[in-house]
Design a protein around this nucleic acid. Structure first.
Lengths: 138, 138
DNA sequence: CTGCGTGCAAACTATTTGCAGTTAC
DNA sequence: GTAACTGCAAATAGTTTGCACGCAG
């Protein structure tokens, strides 16, 4: 898992400006295990940055995705979820309650998946749809 | 791979009406190896059904997804692609040219993926993003 | 000082929805 | 006959964009 300074270094090295908004977004994402949407981030950041905008959030998040620090998940067809954990894992979406969870993939398995594809694979995503134990009961 | 009659039977059995539009959409999807978008289907169907609407296409496609005859792919964050092939396989999206390809997964591998998840898995999707050989060259 | 980044609002676009007319059964 | 389906148009909502201002380097 990356830390804030590491990402800021990289941004500087690539010639991007270190604005307070970018810092705030990176701090907000650092170490998270959940998968916030743009709206969620916006609401959280608004407390400290009342004027922050969706434009800034989307642009920063795209920047982080390009640098490999997060993935923009399209598992939910309504909105994007941001996943700041770079090591490969699968995602489970409960079709009952909409809960989104991480599922571990052993590295060996991940390697096999990568080798499936003759082309140069940059990113692999595994999405599993189903019912979580609670929704399965009801 | 399913055939048209099989799907029509199932619809009838479930109490859905067999309209000419549904028939046309199912016929149009049967045996396809590509992954058309709603717009693509719309343009193709317009030739025989000049009054067909997106509402009908979307609703029929959702119905087919519920019955397990196709998957609605969210690999492309702009629009949905419909995949009428029910056997499990991965999808590759070229980030250069946007080309969408099937990647085979051996059944054994698919089973392993399913067992990753403690919950009841209905659908598994594997999306691989990268560059196709042509785009990788340039 | 210079240009990248931000914030606002407007634009965009794929998909969904309401409703009146139509059709399968 | 009647409930389900269709087609149109309008609504929806997440994301993107244009532009003027502000701030980092």
């Amino acid at each position: 898992m990356w830390n804030v300074d590491e990402v800021l270094e990289k941004l500087k090295a690539k010639g991007y400006k270190l604005t307070s908004q970018r810092r705030a977004i990176i701090e907000r994402l650092c170490g998270r295990k959940d998968h916030p949407t743009a709206e969620q981030l916006y609401n959280e950041l608004k407390k400290d940055y009342p004027t922050i905008s969706f434009a800034t959030i989307y642009s920063t998040v795209q920047l982080l995705a390009e640098l490999g620090y997060l993935q923009i998940l399209t598992i939910d067809d309504k909105k994007s979820h941001f996943d700041p954990t770079p090591d490969m894992h699968a995602h489970f979406l409960c079709q009952g309650c909409g809960k989104l969870e991480d599922i571990e993939i052993i590295p060996e398995e991940a390697e096999k998946l990568k080798s499936l594809c003759a082309h140069k694979a940059r990113i692999i995503e595994v999405f599993i749809y189903g019912l979580c134990p609670e929704c399965d009961k009801g």
